[in-house]
């Protein structure tokens, strides 16, 4: 056969591509269930029309509090609203005993990264969606995938395994910060963002 060599070579390439693009991500990430379901859309939708910062608050000193503590949920959900299972579990397992929900955070950065929400959101007036996407209108939580090597969430790299964001808000790695700062002529040293 004339092209026998090329065929085997191409077969190897194709096999590698298939593995690399489709099997590798499955092997690299481990999916972990969030402790309980959450529907952002119900909160931010027309009926309640809450804004992000009503729950994702800032502390007095400007620190971003991140995911609200269960006491914040209890402000409205001290007793079950509605009859869904999730609601029942929320009240019984967390709110009544006052136990914090062990959320897994999609955007959790390494300990040596410093990011100030106040600088970007309060002073810089950036909309939350610019980094977090339309998370606030989701009805279910996306699956939480842990990188088996680095231990960080898949969302830090971006959902797309290529590292090329399919949507502008995908990925939260350092180059994303650096590019955005460079676009705005912000010149910084390392300590500006590393703690």
């Amino acid at each position: 056969m004339k092209h026998r060599g090329i065929i085997f070579l191409l077969a190897g390439v194709l096999a590698a591509l298939a593995i690399g693009w489709f099997v590798f991500p499955l092997a690299l990430y481990r999916t972990e269930p969030q402790p309980i379901g959450f529907n952002h859309a119900v909160h931010t939708g027309e009926q309640n029309s809450m804004t992000c910062d009503m729950c994702h608050e800032f502390a007095e000193d400007g620190r971003f509090k991140g995911i609200p503590v269960v006491a914040k949920c209890a402000e409205c959900h001290s007793t079950a609203i509605g009859t869904t299972d999730v609601e029942k579990r929320l009240v019984e397992e967390y709110i009544t005993p006052g136990k914090e929900i062990p959320w897994m955070v999609y955007s959790r950065q390494p300990d040596n990264a410093y990011f100030s929400h106040a600088t970007h959101v309060t002073r810089g007036k950036m909309p939350c969606e610019e980094c977090h996407g339309p998370h606030g209108s989701s009805t279910t939580l996306p699956s939480f995938q842990v990188n088996r090597i680095s231990g960080y969430s898949r969302d830090v790299w971006g959902r797309d395994i290529s590292g090329i964001p399919s949507e502008p808000w995908q990925g939260m790695k350092m180059d994303r910060c650096v590019n955005c700062h460079a676009d705005r002529n912000k010149v910084d040293g390392c300590v500006a963002c590393h703690k």
């Binding site: 800032f58 000193d61 400007g62 620190r63 410093y114 100030s116 106040a118 600088t119 309060t122 002073r123 810089g124 300590v191 590393h194 703690k195």
Partner: peptide, 19 residues
């Protein structure tokens, strides 16, 4: 690093107050 953690905290506080 001249307590860069405190610099960060001061910057966050300033930003939160719009400075």
């Amino acid at each position: 690093n001249f307590c860069h953690g405190r610099l960060h905290a001061a910057r966050t506080k300033a930003a939160a107050e719009g400075r």
